[in-house]
Amino acid sequence: MKTTSEKNADIQILRAIAILLVIAQHIRSRLPTPQAYHEIFDHVTFWPGVDIFFAISGFLICKTFFRDMQTSQTKTSAIKSFWIRRVARLLPAVVFWGVTSIAISFYTSSYPNTNPSLVAKSALTGILGVSNIYWASCVQFALECGSADYNAVTWSLSLEWQLYALSTLLFVATGFRKGIIILAAISIIMSFLPSPSFSFPWVFRPQAFVIGALIFLIGTEKSKALNPSANIALLFTGLLICLLSPINIPQPFTVPAISVGAGLCLYSTLGGSSIPPLIGGFFSWIGERSYSIYLCHLPMILFSREILNTLSLTAPSNINFFIGIVIATALIAFMSEASYKFIELPFQRKLSNRRPEINLATQQTTTPQL
Rank of each mutant, 00 (worst) to 15 (best):
I40R: 00
I293P: 04
G271A: 13
G212Q: 01
F65K: 03
I325R: 02
G287V: 09
L31T: 02
P250I: 06
S158C: 11
N320G: 03
Y164C: 04
K341T: 12
E357N: 08
R15F: 13
Q140W: 07
D42N: 03
T362A: 15
F46L: 01
E39W: 00
T114Y: 07
W161H: 08
D51A: 06
V94K: 10
R177T: 03
R349T: 11
S339L: 08
I332N: 00
I19D: 09
V139F: 15
G271E: 08
W285C: 15
I13P: 03
I180M: 02
G126C: 11
S147A: 13
I247G: 02
F303A: 03
L313R: 01
D51W: 04
I181P: 11
L308Q: 00
P112Q: 08
K80F: 09
M1F: 14
I102T: 12
T3H: 14
H26P: 04
S336T: 04
F236C: 14
S292M: 06
P299M: 03
N248R: 09
Q207A: 11
I358E: 12
I232E: 05
I319T: 02
W155Q: 07
D10K: 09
N132T: 01
A257W: 05
L193A: 11
I84D: 07
S187P: 15
Y340T: 06
G271V: 06
R354G: 08
H297F: 06
M190A: 12
T174V: 12
F96P: 05
I61S: 01
N115M: 09
F282S: 09
G58P: 05
F334A: 14
I79E: 05
F82I: 04
R85E: 09
Y111M: 11
K2I: 12
P299Q: 02
I84Q: 13
P206I: 01
P368S: 14
N115Y: 14
V326E: 01
A9G: 11
A16T: 10
T329G: 04
K222A: 08
Y291V: 09
I358P: 06
A257C: 13
S336M: 03
I19P: 11
T108S: 14
N309G: 06
I188A: 07
F322V: 00
F106Q: 10
S167K: 07
R305Y: 06
F200D: 01
L345M: 14
L313A: 03
K341I: 08
I279Q: 09
K2D: 15
S284Q: 12
I27Q: 00
L302C: 08
V50T: 02
Q12W: 07
P250C: 07
S229M: 13
L264S: 08
Q12L: 14
L308K: 00
A361Q: 14
L295A: 01
T220R: 10
D51V: 04
A16E: 10
I325M: 08
I327D: 01
V203Q: 05
P299G: 02
A184H: 05
T168F: 03
I343F: 07
F59D: 05
Q35I: 00
S312N: 15
G146T: 11
I84W: 12
S117N: 12
T114I: 10
P206A: 02
V139N: 15
F59M: 07
A18T: 02
P276M: 03
I189S: 10
V95C: 15
V44K: 01
A328W: 01
T168S: 05
I102W: 10
Y294Q: 04
G129V: 07
S197P: 13
T45M: 04
